[in-house]
């Protein structure tokens, strides 16, 4: 039995700590890269608020609306809103 244990143990070692480390790192690094390339914390709330204001007056679907905050050269930040308006959405 001891001999069998010896071989089994060896096999189990293949999925040990190093692969666990790699898996954890891949997840956290991907997550941190995303938030790095992305936007400030307030952006989701800002998006929500702007959409609510717009919807008081016009119909805006989620797909026809986009918002982004871009860093241009130097200290210039540009907040860009794209709203697609469809013909049938008359504002009366």
């Amino acid at each position: 039995m001891a001999l069998l244990d010896y071989f089994l143990q060896k096999k189990e070692k293949q999925v040990t700590t190093a692969s666990k480390a790699k898996e954890r790192l891949q997840i956290i690094v991907a997550h941190e890269r995303n938030s790095r390339n992305k936007q400030p914390d307030y952006l989701p709330q800002l998006t929500e608020d702007i959409l609510n204001v717009l919807r008081k007056y016009i119909k805006v679907s989620d797909e026809s609306f986009s918002i982004s905050l871009d860093k241009k050269d130097g200290d210039l930040n540009v907040l860009e809103l794209n709203i697609e308006l469809h013909d049938e959405q008359n504002t009366d």
């Binding site: 293949q14 190093a18 692969s19 480390a21």
Partner: peptide
């Protein structure tokens, strides 16, 4: 330690970074 599965390998680190 890499061979024993206790340390990230070169390939692992290159893969991640």
């Amino acid at each position: 330690r890499v061979e024993e599965g206790e340390m990230l390998s070169v390939e692992d680190v290159v893969d991640i970074l």
